[in-house]
Write a protein that binds this DNA or RNA. Sequence first.
DNA 1: TATTGTAGTTAGCGTTAACTAACATTCCTC
DNA 2: GAGGAATGTTAGTTAACGCTAACTACAATA
Lengths: 197, 197
Amino acid sequence: MAPKVNRKTEIIKSATLLFSQDGFDRVTVKRLAHAVGISEPALYRHFKSKEAIYEAVLESIQDRLEYTQLFESLKDEPDIEVVLAEMANHIIEFFTLNIDLYRLLLYSALRGHEKAKHVFQIVRGTYIKFLQKQLDRLHSEGRIVEKRNDITARCFIGMVFDCSLGSTLWRGFQGKVHDPKEVVDNNIPIYVRGLKT
Amino acid sequence: MAPKVNRKTEIIKSATLLFSQDGFDRVTVKRLAHAVGISEPALYRHFKSKEAIYEAVLESIQDRLEYTQLFESLKDEPDIEVVLAEMANHIIEFFTLNIDLYRLLLYSALRGHEKAKHVFQIVRGTYIKFLQKQLDRLHSEGRIVEKRNDITARCFIGMVFDCSLGSTLWRGFQGKVHDPKEVVDNNIPIYVRGLKT
DNA sequence: TATTGTAGTTAGCGTTAACTAACATTCCTC
DNA sequence: GAGGAATGTTAGTTAACGCTAACTACAATA
């Protein structure tokens, strides 16, 4: 009856969406099964537990990320403005295409799920570590002033992540929701002027 | 038998802590009752439902906030560095004293609870609006450069909030957790240099 | 053709959640 | 000190959850 797609992938896709919308606890296995178009026990053919589905969702997130091209193109960039702008755009674009992910990760991190925290740390940490390395390099080249680059990197990436979240979290609420790109365009020059020698 | 404290207040206090630790859904009424030292039905004497307890928790958060003194002292401050530093310290201090709150608010906002979103918007929005007003003033006094001050304010406050959250959220994880004060001390000069005329 | 594995179904088990009925005790007020 | 409100208890009910038992349909292959 059901069309012959890859059920496992289909389940992960639906689960990612549902978990990010309502959180792990408020998504029932029944609802998830119906979202895929099968019955509950059929779902258990593919995953041994609800938790296992969740684990698979987290695994799949890591696969969706692709930084190598970005990092390659920025590793010798002399202009701090270009480094910051391209990293910010990369993050924003990713979360625009995968709006569910940041919500899901944050949700899970708040819940204290160890694996989710781990994934979040990897996603966020990869950007932070790379930016820190670039800041170190740009300082050693005499292009930017001396700073605690680990902290600067953490804050900049944090700001960009926060903006990405904000645009999905606050939609329809009193506080104005700015386009993340607009936000970054306004703030990167502040950082640049604050950092350049 | 029970000591004659104000039970309602006591319940709200326990509920705030538990909800912020585990989220609304993972806190059972039974657990909450035991945390207070009474039985489940006794708790229902004071609140008509679990949701009602949650509403009361949200109400109480607004009471805990106190900005007027801070705002009064900064409304004519000529130095952007002082404005940013004192606002940041105020937020950080508040969340250090009430570590549960930001988690709870964010948790609830993700869950989509309208009232929680509203409270979060008020807490965050009050800081942002005040900062924006000060940036407008400082610009009109010729002390800082022209910017989209709504965005600048939103990002700065977002950064501070993010740091406050980070210190409770990521504790014990691979990514270094910086002391929020240390973070602010490193980054405010960047903003200041980026903004000053 | 018989066998086997995969993917589905219906019906229901065991547990736990929120909440309630009915009754007991304490405490304030007259 | 009697009465009533406030605050507590024990022992449930109901509904929903995660998950399973038992069985079925079907395609691929020996």
